[in-house]
Nucleic acid binder design. Sequence first.
DNA 1: ATGCGTCTTCGCAATGATTGAGAACAAATA
DNA 2: TATTTGTTCTCAATCATTGCGAAGACGCAT
Lengths: 138, 138
Amino acid sequence: MRSPEELTVAFRAAGLKVTPQRQLLFRLLHNNSTHPTADSLFGVASGLMPGISLRTVYQTLTELAQMGEIQSIEVGTGSQRFDPNVSDHHHAVCDECGAVHDVYVKRTPELAGLHGFAVTDAHIVYRGVCADCAGDAR
Amino acid sequence: MRSPEELTVAFRAAGLKVTPQRQLLFRLLHNNSTHPTADSLFGVASGLMPGISLRTVYQTLTELAQMGEIQSIEVGTGSQRFDPNVSDHHHAVCDECGAVHDVYVKRTPELAGLHGFAVTDAHIVYRGVCADCAGDAR
DNA sequence: ATGCGTCTTCGCAATGATTGAGAACAAATA
DNA sequence: TATTTGTTCTCAATCATTGCGAAGACGCAT
Ligand SMILES: [Mn+2]
Ligand SMILES: [Mn+2]
Ligand SMILES: [Zn+2]
Ligand SMILES: [Zn+2]
């Protein structure tokens, strides 16, 4: 996604208002590679802006997703995750710690056998144990 | 998954009872390639056995999944789907009609770049429009 | 066939994630 | 500063799924 400054301009240009809540979320999402859930973002946001509502977090995330600034992904962990990285990539989920890592694949396998299916998107979810969790014997 | 007859034996062998509800679900799942949700199965089951509860459907599906007879998959349609096909395969979801098709891929792309992540499973979800929906101009 | 112990079913409440609705509020602009 | 219009927040509602416990039924031993 674009920088908070660029988003500020983009929002105004789109007739949307730039509120403190939105600006905070712009900042929390910028360069964020943790693939946060709405609730985890709400947790961090609440610490910095007591009183911000979970509803507002959801709404802002939905808007950003509709504008194409972030993507919403589903990796099987129960709740939606949001990703400011909108480049073409996939994800690896650690079954130990729940971390979601970005994965870049050379060539996504083509669909074979399913004649007539027009693919618009393909998403690979890897599951396993991440380096951090494997490294430590505990 | 195995046939209803085989499952009957397997359940008894595991100390589980073979009830009419379970037998019905065994039959509804056998050779079922629709990737049903618990609720859609419940709908069909209710027609054949009025009074069966959604709770029982969920419970039986969970048991079958734990026994490895079916798998539970998440393709981003909001609810879990159950698949008696436990072979190594992937899925294509039609954004028009919601149908979920099986996809067999020659070689699942290896994880590159994420050093130390031990992959235990990889699942590809393709999205697009299926042949049926594309073919008909309506 | 009957009895009994254990496993199951079912209804209902509870949970967790997300969305809907509307009153109170605040950003943008003149 | 006043006005307009979009935003935030609270609270209720929804959807999928799970927890709980009383009532019921399977299956084995008589
Ligand atoms: Mn990502
Ligand atoms: Mn399948
Ligand atoms: Zn980990
Ligand atoms: Zn279709």
